[in-house]
Amino acid sequence: MSARDEILKRVRAGVGKDDFSARRALAEAYMAERKRGPQPTLGAELAVRFKSKAESLSSSVEVLPERAEAPAAVARYLTAGGFGLQAVITGDVAGLDWTGSGLTVAARPAVDADKVGISGCFCAVAETGTLMLLSGPETPATVSLLPETHIALVEVSRIVATMEDAFALLRAERGDLPRAINFISGPSRTGDIEQTIVLGAHGPCRVHLILTGTNP
């Protein structure tokens, strides 16, 4: 007997029910229902909540009225930190006038040598101050992963309350799941040496968010 058959036989014996197709129909109905668990009540405006949560997770946040102002703000941030003005960028935000602000950006997947990665995001989650990024030809996952500095552009209109709302938006706009959904909440961290938290474990050491749209 194959491992699959043997394991499933044991599982069926343990479950101890026979009406498989009826139970399968119930399972399908349950999935279609998309029932949510207890939902949080978020007091503040979503953008305010998102900003304060993101900051509490060690991201820095700059608020701008217009997305067109992002390149100048990014240039200021990079210059102030001494991080250099070269960046790898995802296609969804490559169209802004980066060169006009003195940046040299390349829209391609990131490599080890890239110091700065600039991305947009599919949406952001206010509850936890989290970015939701989807992998795709225009938005390689490496851009938010390999460089030491990750800068993400977030539109206030794309901030949703919860992870459940983010999934609902994804289903509405995209249907299927991409290969990778990455929820990112601040710079990578480790506490594995004597429980001391260090930022910059394997992913970015710093995450800077540019929040554009209305002023939170």
């Binding site: 989290t130 996952a141 490496t142 290969r179 990778a180 909440s185 992913g203």
Partner: peptide, 30 residues
């Protein structure tokens, strides 16, 4: 309140993708 990275991984590298595995294998263990 949330871990830094929460990744949901489905299938393999899609046409046009620059990254992701060409082969994804699940081993379901008893």
């Amino acid at each position: 309140s949330i871990s830094n990275y929460v990744s949901l991984l489905t299938g393999t590298k899609q046409p046009g993708d620059s990254d992701g595995p060409e082969k994804t294998v699940f081993i379901l263990v008893d």
